[in-house]
Amino acid sequence: MAPHVKIERGTRTSRIAGRLALVLLAALAAAPWWTGRANLRLLGEFYTFVALASLWNLLAGYAGLVSVGQQAFVGFGGYVLFAAAMFYGVPPLLAIVLAGVVGALIALPMAPLLFRLHGAYFAIGTWVAAEVFRLSFAQVSVLGGGSGTSLPARLVTGIAATRDQRDMLLYWCALALGLGTVAMIYALLRSRAGLALAAIRDSEIASESLGIDIFRTKLAIYVATAAVTSMVGALIFLQKLRISPDAAFSVNDWTAYVIFIVVIGGIGTIEGPIVGAIVFFLLRETLADLGTIYLVILGMVAIAVMLKAPRGLWGSFSHRTGIVLFPLRRRVVHPDAR
């Protein structure tokens, strides 16, 4: 007789945390009514970094594609939004979605080329690609060339009539994008594709013999990540209302800090990038007065975490306590054992 078991993923903690998260989300969604403009901006920025960090984590922590060139898509998304809005009259919020589509289309031919490089060389290759983007956009004079351009006022007011309404709208966009990104990644990792990724991470050779197409899996992840990263980039520059090649394709802003966030929080976990982003913003807000020294400290913290606690803050915590908020592992549960 077959043993009476069932397969479960949820844990007690994850179910309690799920309810708490709903309360927290409701509070965050209502933030425009309980906090000021400055905090709203900060929170909006925080959500975009959560999204960028989660995306990089999916790429590096789950698909083994360590990229240091994600600024290519952040900047590209931003430029697509500006170009679509300025030259084709696409409403900016719709242009965010468009940026995602175009971002995927440009990533599709890039991936096979970059996949010719392996390991750390792949990483630097993605960086060179981002540089090509930066230098190319610097040549486009209708977008302001090397000095960049601002979003014309008529387009800005087109988003919403008053500044308060715009801030609210962009805040909710950021919240939706941040939340959507984490939810998408969680769903992806729980799907068959997530199983394939886990198999590839354990052993490329074994997974290939199981019939997993490594190239196509990695390609799909790379392109999907590029698409969402482009959308986040579009939103970031819609928040800033100004874009220039150096700001759009900054390796420090869109890749170095993002990597530090993931590593400090815990690579290869869904919670890690969120925890890392909280730590990053706390550090930034408390040490911002120190100027460049703050970045030196950030670099040191990242190195220290990598050397002393390579699982990151959340990874170490989870490893010690067994607490997981976004359970991915399937567990066999014997009903009588409860």
Binding site: A60, A120, A256, I259, T292, L295, V296, I303
Partner: peptide, 17 residues
């Protein structure tokens, strides 16, 4: 692969700043 990459990345930010 990530550990040396990240440590040298951190080093890069430290030296620059």
């Amino acid at each position: 692969l990530l550990s040396p990459l990240l440590v040298t990345f951190g080093l890069s930010i430290i030296i620059q700043n």
